[in-house]
Amino acid sequence: MTITAEQRRARILEVVRELGSVRVVDLAERVGSAPVTVRRDIAALADGGLLRRSHGTVSLPLDDSPSSAATDRNRVIGMLVPTVGPYFDEVIDGARTAATASGARLVLGITSYEAAHDRAQVAQLLDAGLDGLLLTPNWRPDGEVGDSTWVRELPVPAVLVERIAPPDSAAAQLDSVGSDHAHGVLLALRHLLALGHESVLLAARKDSWTARQVRAGYAEAVRLLGIEPWPVIDVGRPGLESESVASRIAEAVAHDGVRAVLVHNDREAIQLSPLLRARGLRLPDDLALISYDDVFAALAAPPLTAVAPPKRAVGAAALQLMLRRLEAGPDLPVHHVRLLPELKVRSSCGGRGTDKAA
């Protein structure tokens, strides 16, 4: 019988919990899977903070213990996300894997990027008998969160996921786990400067929370690096306005001497590549391009260098923080956790195209 990756990883965690520390080769034999497959699973679980790797052996994180694992069993954790798509698919997968490893059950709710739908979906999730809630509210891209008092009045603890509450909002006192997108933009610009580029364009969406963080990160990065800022090229609906975006990039290359661009997100970056080529711009010879998200970037032609937010690790860390909150209650200080993205260097920006983190 073929088992899923989720079932195999849950079995790996069971064996490690039983033995405490185990060699990878022995673990593969116990799980009944090829060592190369088990090593990939171990890497994913370690990235999510669920395992520790050291010199060919695997063990539990230092703060994991049988007593805490027993407490977490039968917990029901709700998770509300604004959409199911490639980005949040990975966040959900990280939370699901962490829940399975802890014996908790994850219950998913989905809204449609409309703030008015949040409360109705949360109410429906609460009917499932939740112990806690992982919440990604539909806050406006301009940073306006509206009335967040209802979030503070929930009957169960809540952890914000991929959201940063303004300091003056009621939600600021909630735990939160998210990607540090400003750091991701800074990584991209530093890499392009190291390749000899003196300025970098940004072409970005403006209709999502992540897009706002990327835009703010660009403004901060050019200030920190002391390079010339350029007006952001607005990316509208992917595929419908890509021709206009490609024309504006080509114009900046022809008239302003710009040779590097950061594009949010992968879908737009992949669609731009042939449009830029039609305008005489080849990647990376004429233009260095870095994508932001790293969902599909490696599948492009050429493969795109990309900023990779730690999506699965965010989901896992949020679930683990929720379980800690349920265990400790108000004695645990409020946590605002920011995980750093990586830069996956491929061939679209020249230099070292090895598909490794930089």
Results as ranks from 00 to 15, higher is better:
Q173T: 13
A306K: 01
P231S: 09
A306I: 04
T2N: 15
V58T: 12
R325K: 05
V156R: 07
S247C: 01
L272M: 03
E114I: 12
T136D: 04
D355H: 00
V314W: 07
A120M: 14
V314Q: 04
A99R: 08
L154T: 11
H335R: 15
R105D: 06
L133C: 10
M79Y: 09
V122W: 10
S65Q: 03
R30T: 12
S348V: 06
R152C: 11
R248L: 14
A306N: 01
R223N: 05
P141A: 08
V222I: 10
A43Y: 02
Q271G: 09
G129A: 07
T4I: 06
E251F: 06
T100L: 13
A313F: 05
G132Q: 07
R352D: 12
L134V: 06
A101H: 11
L135Y: 15
V263C: 06
K344I: 13
R352H: 07
L299N: 12
H336N: 09
E153L: 07
V156H: 09
H181C: 02
A357T: 00
V145H: 15
T136V: 10
A203E: 11
A70T: 13
S291W: 01
A194S: 15
G143M: 06
P302K: 07
L299Q: 14
G49R: 01
V81E: 07
L62N: 09
E14Q: 15
V337S: 04
W139R: 03
D93S: 14
I110H: 11
K356Y: 00
V31M: 07
R312L: 01
T354H: 06
W139H: 11
V258H: 05
V84A: 12
L287D: 02
A128G: 03
A328W: 09
G129Q: 03
Q7L: 13
I270C: 03
P229V: 04
E153K: 03
G236E: 03
A44R: 13
D118Y: 12
R152A: 15
L319V: 08
I12P: 00
S348F: 07
T37Y: 00
S21E: 15
A69K: 04
E29K: 15
R324S: 11
A171M: 12
R8Y: 02
R40T: 00
